[in-house]
Computed example of a mutant assay.
Amino acid sequence: MAINLSKGQKVDLTKTNPGLTNIVVGLGWDTNKYDGGNDFDLDSSVFLLNGAGKCSSESDFIFYNNTTGANGAVEHTGDNRTGQGDGDDEQVKINLVNVPSSIEKIAFTITIHDAEARSQNFGQVNNSYVRILSETTGEELIRYDLGEDFSIETAVVVGELYRHSGEWKFNAIGSGYQGGLVSLVKDFGLDV
C-alpha cells in the first residue's frame, strides 16, 4: 500500500523496499475551468543535482527535448501536451543503482508552458500529484497530492529523491515559483 505524504514529509524509499532498483515517477494534474482561449500545457522536468544542489551541466536538466540523463539512468518518457485522461500525465523512469554517485538529488518539477503570455498559473490547476511506483511490479509505493495551495505560481518543485546513508529517500516539497521554468533553471545553477 502506498505511503501518502504531506508537504515537507520525508520517507525512505529503498530501505523500506529492499531490492528496489527501477522506479517510475508519475506526475499528474488537471486544469480547472479555464476559458482564456489558449491551450494549457503543463510540463514535467527533472534536475539532477550535485551535493551543492546545482546541476553540473545542461545534460543534468531532463525534459521533453532532452529525455535521458545520468548516463541513461534517468529517462523522461515524453510530453503530454493536453493533460487529458486519467492516470499519470507524464512519467520519468529511474534506475536507482545506475545513477552516478555525483548526483545526490533528483528534483521533480511541473511548469506551465508560456504561462505569462497565456495568463495561466497554478491557481488554475488542481489534482496535482507525484507518485513513485516499482517499475517491476507496478505497485504504487509513495504518493504526494499537492493540494490547492497555489495561486499566481507558474512552476512547482513537487519533490525530490535524495541519497542518505547509502539509501534513497523522497522529500515532498510542493514549493511554488513565479517566473516559470526560467526561474527553476537559474535556481538549479544553469544559464538560460
Rank of each mutant, 00 (worst) to 15 (best):
R118S: 13
F108R: 08
Q124I: 00
G87L: 06
Q120R: 13
D88W: 01
L133G: 09
L133Y: 13
K105Q: 14
A107E: 03
N121P: 01
K105H: 13
V99S: 04
S134W: 05
I132P: 00
V125Y: 12
S119R: 15
G87S: 10
N126Q: 11
F122M: 00
E104Q: 15
K93Q: 14
I112W: 08
F122S: 00
I132A: 00
F108A: 03
S101K: 14
N126L: 02
G85Y: 04
V99H: 07
D89K: 15
S128W: 09
I94P: 03
N121T: 07
S102H: 11
N127P: 04
N95K: 11
G123A: 01
I106K: 10
N98I: 02
G87K: 12
N98K: 13
N121S: 11
R131V: 00
D114M: 05
F108K: 05
E116Q: 13
N126C: 07
Q120N: 10
E104V: 12
E104W: 07
T111D: 09
S101I: 13
K93I: 07
L96K: 02
V130R: 07
D88R: 06
Q91K: 12
I103Q: 11
Y129P: 05
A115H: 07
D114F: 01
A117C: 10
V92M: 03
L96Y: 01
P100A: 04
H113T: 12
N98T: 06
E135T: 11
V125E: 12
D114T: 09
I106R: 12
N127K: 14
V92Y: 06
R131H: 08
V125P: 08
E135G: 05
V92H: 06
T111I: 12
Q120D: 10
I94Y: 02
N98G: 02
I110L: 15
A115W: 08
E116C: 05
R118G: 02
Q120I: 04
E104L: 12
G123I: 01
V92L: 04
I106P: 07
R131Y: 03
K93N: 14
D89W: 06
N98F: 01
G85V: 03
V130A: 14
D86N: 11
K93D: 13
I110E: 14
L133F: 10
V125M: 08
Y129M: 09
V97M: 14
S102Y: 10
T111H: 06
E116W: 09
A107K: 08
S119F: 13
I132E: 00
I106D: 09
T109E: 01
I94R: 02
V92D: 03
A117N: 15
D88H: 07
K93W: 08
A107Y: 03
T109H: 00
E90L: 03
G87I: 09
D114S: 13
E90D: 07
I110F: 06
I103H: 09
I106C: 10
I132T: 01
E135Q: 14
V125T: 15
D89N: 13
A117P: 11
